[in-house]
Every structure is written in C-alpha cells, then in structure tokens.
Amino acid sequence: MRDALALGLLVAVTVGLFGATELYYVAYSHYRASLGLPIDNSPVITLPVVRRH
C-alpha cells in the first residue's frame, strides 16, 4: 500500500513536471521568436542543431 501511494505520487510529480517543462519550453520559444531568432533550427549554447520537429 505504501509503495502504491509512493508510486502514485511519483507519477503525479512526473506528469506535473512534464506540464511545467512544456510551459517553460513554450515561453522560451516565444522569447526567442521575440528576439527574431528561429525557434526550430538554431543552436545558441547547449542545444543540438535541430530542435523539436
């Protein structure tokens, strides 16, 4: 039972973090776009050459 609760909490945290990361990514993409930078194909520092398709 304790394991089930802990696993449920873990799933909730993972889903919540997915949502937060998605929002962060979208906000960052808007910021890049506002600077006139491409949001799909332009590494600045740490990102690989091609972003999410």
Partner: peptide, 22 residues
C-alpha cells in the same frame, strides 16, 4: 521515473542557460 524526471530537469536547465545567456 528517475530517467524521465532527470531528463525534464536537464531540459529546463539547458533552456535556462540559453535564456540567461540571451
């Protein structure tokens, strides 16, 4: 789960670095 959560945090970390740099 550890892989997914770590991956998400590292994604946020990498975005933060770029955001701060810009």
């Amino acid at each position: 789960f550890i892989g997914v959560i770590s991956g998400l945090l590292v994604v946020c970390f990498r975005i933060s670095i770029e955001w701060l740099r810009l």
